[in-house]
Design a protein around this nucleic acid. Structure first.
Lengths: 242, 242
DNA sequence: CGCGTGAAATTGCGATCACAATGCACGAAC
DNA sequence: GTTCGTGCATTGTGATCGCAATTTCACGCG
């Protein structure tokens, strides 16, 4: 419902091209884990669900495939969220544990009062989501918290790499946290990170984010080793809204 | 000339879809530095040059933009190779110096006789290219040498990240080596790397690749700091062939 | 009741068209 | 000679169509 009504022709300079909106929709769905890993969706079905023609969906999907957030079965040509093997998880963890603390360390000297205040607000949302068991809200808030920091680093290339990594593990974070029931561990690490940022302590921020990641990835690794996350499907239906 | 003749309709399961061929063409042109940074090309002109309709070019370009190998001017919407600023170079160097030695170290235990032989052959081509001043051949051989090693690591995620990084600096490596005149430094590091791989010495391979990268990036940094590579255009025309 | 076998529906890819917006160039006014 | 406006060519985007290949499902034979 209310997917899109009239949609007059978009002007050229308008940044909200349809394929960008579609991209953002799918990306958000991936980060928050709304798209179940393993299910094969088709281009036309996605287009129908979003109320647009297949063309902009094709464009958006190409971007996501290039970012390895989606995979195309070479035989079927059907697209799905690539399943997370132990090897993939190991590499993603390694990359995240290198790049994200680095971004945090670079952000620390550039942190200001406004950033800390925004982080505090996000963290309140996050704890609220944890308290009421809102997995969706937790995923959104956690992503927002980390990338509010990372964007502050002013490191475009590294930021894009970090974004790509989140896109690849997002669906599985959802699976894991959905199972574990949003164990309330990570909040304290966030407090440490905020303290370090407030003090402009680069190494402290690096350690705090590294610890936060380690805890989260430990849970994911445990889940995957238990055979859970490989091809699991959490809720079922793919809910994408623009 | 001889871009494409009849081109009967490709079957669905055929891996050589037109947009993939276009992607490979542009990618190769970027890695070898055949596309000059800063020049704005249009979708239709690219399509005409390749002898295909604009549609598969659109697909290929989307992938490359997602990989940050091409950039779209938000106002013009014309696409170009993103110019290399000092900040971008610093981040790319950092990322490369982390990920590529890691891949080399992972490849070392899995190296075999065939790999070393292939590397030796590539290195001969490389030295030959250096000797006769064939910048193109040097770029191709250097890329082949590194990724013959990296592919052996069996680390799909990290390999893709490394490939993306090469795609981003490729055009500028060309500019720099075109200027410097292919100073013959890097060959010895390649010999070190091959020795380490033959001995299955992970840390030795890591050091050799790290040293190779350092030397290359030092040259690039010097060139960029001299104000050369920022928006420089080496030869001029974009030569893309399928 | 199981299992091939047929046709019909669905799929991705590429071409072509329409359209709005921008770029560019030629010419007029001062 | 310089500058500004006006027209035309070109651009990216999205919709629609055609095609070949695959998938899906039902029906009938064993």
């Amino acid at each position: 419902m209310s997917v899109k009504e009239v949609r007059t022709r978009r002007p050229l300079a308008d940044s909200t091209a349809v394929h960008d909106q579609v991209y953002d929709s799918i990306r958000q769905a991936l980060i928050t884990g709304k798209i179940a890993p393993g299910v094969g969706v088709s281009l036309r079905s996605l287009a129908a669900e979003l109320g647009v023609s297949p063309m902009p969906v094709r464009d958006a999907v190409r971007r996501l495939v290039a970012e390895r957030a989606l995979a195309i079965n070479p035989a079927n040509k059907r697209l799905s969220v690539p399943s997370l093997t132990a090897e993939r998880l190991e590499q993603l963890e390694l990359a995240r544990r290198w790049i994200e603390p680095e971004l945090a360390a670079r952000a620390a000297p550039r942190a200001d009062e406004a950033l800390v205040r925004r982080l505090k607000a996000i963290d309140l949302d996050l704890e609220e989501a944890l308290r009421v068991g809102d997995v969706d809200g937790y995923m959104v808030a956690n992503h927002a918290f980390h990338f509010a920091i990372y964007e502050r680093a002013g490191a475009e290339v590294l930021l894009a790499m970090a974004g790509g990594l989140w896109l690849q593990i997002g669906p599985f974070m959802r699976v894991v946290f959905g199972r574990v029931g949003t164990g309330s561990l990570p909040a304290d690490r966030h407090a440490e990170a905020m303290d370090a940022l407030k003090a402009r302590d680069a190494e402290g921020a690096r350690r705090a984010i590294a610890a936060d990641l380690s805890e989260g990835m430990d849970k994911m690794r445990a889940a995957v080793e238990a055979g859970a996350g490989l091809t699991a499907a959490p809720a079922g239906q793919t809910v994408i809204t623009m």
